[in-house]
């Protein structure tokens, strides 16, 4: 394989690698941050399914959503909505918190096999 063929192979692999969009309907779930408190503090979502979490920060200051369990970090700008994609996850409890107010801005995502709402 010469260098040109090698580069061609790389390009083919890059195309194979490129993002593929999922057209399946992603379920929406909502959280609100107000007075440095997330509500609902416990949110149930379905297991083994990707969901879209929309967080509305109603406070005047920014907050940063952080969860090692969920492997997500997201800046929540004041009076704006942020989107976080979660999952697919196994059943269990996944904690998250706000980095600027970790004592009050806390919550749990409960992943259940069924009856999530």
């Amino acid at each position: 394989m010469n260098k040109l063929q090698y580069i061609n192979s790389l390009l083919i692999l890059i195309v194979l690698w490129m993002p593929t969009y999922s057209w399946a309907k992603t379920k929406l779930f909502y959280l609100t941050l107000e007075n440095n408190v997330f509500t609902p503090s416990e949110l149930k979502i379905p297991a083994k399914e990707k969901v879209k979490l929309i967080i509305h920060n109603k406070d005047d200051k920014a907050e940063e959503f952080d969860s090692f369990d969920l492997n997500r970090e997201k800046m929540l700008f004041p009076h704006k909505k942020a989107v976080i994609f979660i999952g697919p996850l196994l059943p269990g409890k996944y904690e998250y918190f706000g980095e600027y107010n970790p004592n009050s801005a806390r919550g749990i995502i409960i992943v259940e096999v069924s009856n999530a709402n």
């Binding site: 993002p19 593929t20 999922s22 997500r72 976080i84 994609f85 999952g87």
Partner: peptide
């Protein structure tokens, strides 16, 4: 380029 968790 992509939002974390949005795509495959």
């Amino acid at each position: 380029i992509t939002e974390q968790g949005e795509l495959w």
